[in-house]
């Protein structure tokens, strides 16, 4: 039982670290431009497909990954410049909906180019697993975890320590003051979008190497949503922790909670299956967190509540 739980934890942490990477992007965009980006999932998917496409063109896997990241950065910038900027003064519902429109559009483009079927993603990491005291850790897991954590930490360091990071923080904190001290805020926002999209892109490639490549990757954006709200929309570290938490939570729900729930249901009710509990548990938790602390676990107290 202990081994089983530990094994679940390993799987949960590996996926969770990728979630964290993606959630980081959502928070970055929200902090900088005040936009809740539903299209983050589409960035994830597009990043994976672009990596796949570049490998198909004959590039080595790692070069393809890098290339996809650069392309994604461009895509992020384009989204900001072409779609979001003209809508700067639009109401919240319009901005949320326009990112949904982007999600639908990007999914359709991938569908048109790569078709609806699941594809075999090129191997980024060797097959096989290391055995740690009887717990197997596949290289894929290990790589996804290490890479996600390095990237996330690296990004946080960049954000905290470099001059560009400082300008980013200024823009996010107080755009007017940032303007006043000569920061080109709209460039900073574009930069935030491209970094965010690039992060999502690499997250997508990692997820695809774990789980295969399909249009379903875009749905991760809706999975990541509870994560970021749990973390607090304004906290980068919060997003990281919440991402890991979500991965672990899903694995534990699948492995431990569901069997127990089903046991109960089969004994006492006519219901036989607990269904996709792992998909609702994060949302149920989200409702609780929203009720108790709408600013999230790590967010600052805001005014989003009466």
């Amino acid at each position: 039982m202990l081994m089983f739980t530990l094994q679940l934890l390993v799987a949960g942490i590996a996926t969770g670290s990728v979630y964290a990477l993606i959630a980081l992007g959502i928070v970055l965009i929200y902090k900088c431009s005040g936009v809740v980006n539903f299209a983050q999932g589409a960035f994830v998917m597009l990043g994976a497909y672009l990596t796949y496409g570049l490998v198909k063109l004959g590039l080595p896997a790692y070069v393809a990954l890098l290339g996809a990241m650069i392309l994604m950065a461009g895509c992020g910038m384009a989204s900001e410049r072409l779609v979001l900027r003209p809508m700067m003064k639009a109401p919240l519902v319009a901005v949320m909906t326009v990112t949904l429109g982007m999600l639908i559009l990007m999914k359709a483009v991938c569908l048109a180019i790569w078709g609806p079927d699941q594809l075999a993603f090129p191997r980024l990491f060797p097959d096989g697993a290391v055995d740690v005291f009887g717990i197997f850790v596949t290289y894929n897991y290990l790589a996804a975890f290490v890479l996600s954590i390095c990237l996330s930490v690296g990004f946080l360091a960049f954000y905290q320590l470099t001059p560009i990071g400082l300008m980013q923080r200024c823009t996010a904190d107080n755009p007017r003051a940032a303007l006043a001290i000569g920061i080109h805020t709209s460039n900073q926002i574009s930069l935030a979008w491209s970094m965010s999209a690039a992060l999502a892109g690499i997250g997508g490639a990692l997820l695809a190497s774990l789980n295969g490549l399909s249009l379903g990757l875009a749905d991760i954006g809706l999975v990541a949503f509870p994560v970021i709200v749990l973390g607090g929309l304004t906290s980068l570290t919060g997003a990281l922790v919440a991402g890991l938490l979500l991965g672990v939570l899903q694995a534990l729900t699948d492995g431990l909670l569901t069997p127990v729930a089903e046991q109960f249901l089969r004994t006492y009710t006519s219901i036989y299956s607990a269904g996709a509990l792992q998909q609702v548990v994060p949302y149920a938790l989200l409702v609780v967190v929203l009720l108790v602390r709408p600013e999230g676990i790590f967010g600052q107290r805001g005014t989003e509540r009466l």
């Binding site: 094994q7 996926t15 295969g212 534990l252 699948d254 792992q278």
Partner: peptide, 8 residues
């Protein structure tokens, strides 16, 4: 997309 826990 991920059924690791179920396979366990």
């Amino acid at each position: 997309q991920d059924l690791t826990a179920q396979m366990l």
